[in-house]
Design a protein around this nucleic acid. Structure first.
Length: 273
DNA sequence: AACGAAACCTGCGCGC
DNA sequence: TGCGCGCAGGTTTCGT
């Protein structure tokens, strides 16, 4: 469930479930097959035991669990990749790789079919000075328009590729990139260095509008992806993504599907310049 | 240096 | 029914 609105919904739900709960035990299954998923040694995970979850934060598409004990504070940084999900008290299956047992008989499993996600432990010192958060750009809600505009103008990539680049702006993925550029009337193929300051501002304000709306609708649930039983509704509000050959809601010409930077891209060639 | 391609994984749906 | 192919809400690494 990987873009900003879906991750934000997971964050809010997780806070309701485990805020102020103490971690009692962690199980990690077949850890030798999880070398890309686990950024930290297993014993580092065990160092979280007997700490309580004092907060859950989100940076772009990353979740950050704050664990506090009497002696120190540590952070679990989690990215859901393409197929990562959290479940509460679910009967485990072969894709539940890590299970966190809390007080009050609550357990959370991290399930990830494709194992593109990430779970890594950081100290307070390391959190923003090491991968992956050290190079992460601000999300549309907090980025400065001038900084964003200057980043775009440094590159000759297509604008769609640039707004998917988490070092330039974070939180936007393949679905919302298409929706945002459509609402701005900007072609996904336009070169970043040709985007004006006004258009940069439009990208940010449309991103804020679309992402906020999606957060309110619980995110998008397509192909049955969801986490913690969250069933999003925003897929019903999509106007270009997945709409190949459907009439553009503005000009009625068919929506085109192309590849940009290797990703499926939907747009209206008449409304987006 | 910069670009697209392939890699990392698994499962699903499609056409033959 | 079975097989092969292409596809998937992401990101990093590898070639030319």
């Amino acid at each position: 469930m990987p873009e900003l609105p879906e991750v934000e919904n997971v964050r809010l739900k997780l806070l309701n479930i485990i805020k102020n709960k103490t971690l009692l035990k962690i199980d990690i299954f077949s850890e030798h097959n999880l070398s890309n998923l686990l950024g930290t040694e297993v014993n580092e995970f065990n160092s979280l035991i007997n700490s309580a979850i004092t907060d859950i934060l989100r940076y772009g598409k990353y979740l950050v669990f704050e664990f506090t004990s009497s002696s120190d504070t540590k952070y679990l940084v989690s990215h859901l990749g393409m197929s990562g999900k959290y479940y509460q008290n679910k009967v485990l299956d072969k894709h539940d790789h890590v299970v966190f047992y809390f007080e009050d008989d609550i357990y959370l499993s991290y399930n990830d079919v494709r194992k593109f996600g990430l779970l890594t432990i950081k100290t307070k010192e390391q959190l923003f000075t090491t991968n992956p958060l050290n190079l992460l750009a601000p999300d549309p809600f907090s980025i400065s328009c001038e900084v964003f505009y200057n980043s775009l103008n440094k590159h000759h990539h297509e604008i769609k590729t640039l707004i998917l680049d988490q070092h330039i702006i974070s939180g936007i993925g393949n679905i919302y990139a298409d929706e945002i550029l459509y609402s701005c009337g900007i072609s996904p193929l336009r070169e970043g260095s040709k985007i004006t300051l006004e258009e940069s501002s439009s990208i940010i304000s449309n991103a804020i509008k679309i992402l906020s709306h999606s957060i309110k609708e619980g995110g998008s649930t397509i192909r049955d992806y969801n986490s913690l039983g969250i069933k999003g509704n925003y897929q019903n509000f999509l106007v270009v993504h997945t709409k190949e050959n459907c009439p553009c809601i503005y000009c009625k010409n068919p929506i085109k599907k192309i590849k940009v930077g290797g990703r499926s891209t939907y747009y209206c060639e008449y409304c987006q310049k």
